[in-house]
Design a protein around this nucleic acid. Structure first.
Lengths: 140, 140
DNA sequence: TTTGTATTTGCAACTAGTTTCAATAAAAAC
DNA sequence: GTTTTTATTGAAACTAGTTGCAAATACAAA
């Protein structure tokens, strides 16, 4: 099929089968520079193999998400997007006025995480969060 | 119909019509102690007026959300719930293991808001956030 | 290489939520 | 109280995502 990347290796290590459909979903995510949507993944696959069903794409993403190999982020307007967990965690500031997306380093949320752990004994996931609001340009 | 609460007054002040359907949605939200789901609101309405359509409930919630009169929170598993904005803002820690929901005061996120404003010139909404992770009992 | 089997897939039916549009009814004007 | 205007509603069609199940196939074992 195609050279399997890091996610594919982990999948088979965990005992899941490496089907062509799964490899195509993995490639689409790994080859994508930024975040990729279900439609984009599906379009990419159908272009080569039209018989592949969209439900397989949804199921594969659900699996990858559950195993923590991929992170899902809601960047607003129901636009859920996917990203390889291998490429590191980060967060986004999403402007609800102009739609601008500002990337945010993971460290910005670390003091919040500490507070929650100390005061509420709660281990916050916060791997890939979208914070909605207004950017500089739109707040004037 | 029914004694209109604070939200109803604001709606008509803003020039929106006070229909029986809207008043019923408002009452359901205002009368609910905690967060209420679409199905719960709809079930409550249909019990009295079976001819009311679910799309009207969705449209009313969309309107109230847009006007900031009601806050929407995703408490996990696609279970979106609604809450009167008049009753104050707060946040939730949701345990992905046992489903426990811990309420969190708004102030816990104020230092994060400050940081985002100072370092990124971004005005974060963060009115009603759900943070996913693991509670004390499940993290052992 | 062939066989066996449990996992995975495609398909079709289903659910939640959205949208379009003609009919209805709030609220303003008379 | 009646008429007029235009926002709002109900109905039905539509879209995105999910689920059940029989058929297909990845992979282990022979």
């Amino acid at each position: 099929m195609k050279q399997p990347g890091g996610i594919a290796n982990k999948l088979s290590e965990l005992g899941y089968r490496l089907t062509p459909q799964r490899i195509m979903v993995l490639s689409a995510i790994e080859d994508s520079d930024n975040h990729i949507s279900v439609e984009e993944i599906y379009a990419q696959i159908v272009a080569k193999y039209p018989q592949v069903n969209i439900s397989t794409v949804y199921r594969t993403l659900e699996l990858l998400k559950r195993l923590g190999l991929v992170t899902e982020t809601d960047l607003g307007g129901g636009r859920v997007r996917y990203h390889s967990a291998e490429k590191g965690h980060h967060h986004h500031l999403v402007c609800q006025e102009c739609g601008a997306i500002i990337d945010l380093d993971e460290s910005v949320l670390s003091s919040l995480k500490d507070t929650l752990l100390r005061e509420y004994k709660f281990i916050a996931g916060l791997r890939h969060l979208a914070i909605f609001g207004r950017c500089v340009n739109c707040s004037r």
